[in-house]
Amino acid sequence: MFVVFDADAYFNSRTDSTVKPPKKYSLNSAGIIDETMSKNSDYSYTVYTDLELLKVRLKQIFKKKIIPGQPTMKNGKPLPYFVYDSIEVNVDNVKHVKEVLTLLNKSGYQAVGKIEWLEQSEMQSKMIQTVLGGIGAVSLFVAAIGIANTMVMSIYERTKEIGVLKVLGCDMGSNISRIPSWLSLAALIFAALVGITAGIFPALKAMNMSPLAAIRNE
């Protein structure tokens, strides 16, 4: 495996023939990240190594020269120490992320966590669910009013017929109830199955989605 320590020069040389490509250094690797994790993700073009070993290797390669990506003093000479533009902190539990972010910000660091993006996505999802739920509730209310109006008008129109049936001594229970009980039960079971099927497949798809893909998705 080879590595380059001047990433900007490397990518510029691939698009601009006038830019001289940086020197490549051969290193022994212990393994390669799985393609499903590294493809089109934050892990692409990333090497994981021991920090102290990296410092020793950089000093051996560049000696007293300027290390790419490192700031210099006013006279143009490299600093005698390493400067880091960012660090990555891994928290043992997602519940502790906010607490760690607060401590880092109070310590003077500009800390940003992916939990904020997830919370923003959850908030947007809740807003969409609320709007859709409101629309559905209004639709159900209007439908209920329409059904009630239809039933009331049907009773008013058949008032005379019902009176005649009562005078003749007919059993009103068997005449008014026209829908069989088995049909009502079948309709209820069918509606439940449709609702479960419509909800479980999107939920399973969301559970199997990669966290990085979920964060990138807007």
Rank of each mutant, 00 (worst) to 15 (best):
S17E: 10
S17C: 00
T18P: 00
T18L: 06
V19F: 14
V19K: 07
V19Y: 12
V19H: 12
P21A: 10
P22F: 15
P22N: 15
Y25L: 12
Y25R: 06
L27Q: 12
L27G: 05
N28M: 11
N28P: 04
S29F: 11
S29G: 07
S29P: 02
S29A: 14
A30H: 11
A30W: 13
G31I: 09
G31N: 11
I33F: 14
I33A: 11
D34Q: 15
E35N: 09
T36G: 09
T36D: 14
S38V: 07
S38Y: 08
N40R: 05
N40V: 05
N40H: 08
S44T: 12
Y45I: 05
Y48H: 14
T49H: 09
L51I: 06
L51S: 10
K55C: 06
V56W: 01
R57F: 14
L58I: 05
Q60L: 06
I61E: 01
K63V: 09
K63H: 08
K64F: 03
K64Q: 08
K65T: 01
K65Y: 06
I66F: 00
P68T: 05
P68E: 09
P68S: 08
M73T: 07
K74Y: 07
N75I: 00
N75L: 01
N75D: 11
G76L: 02
K77T: 12
K77G: 03
P78W: 01
P78C: 02
L79N: 03
P80V: 04
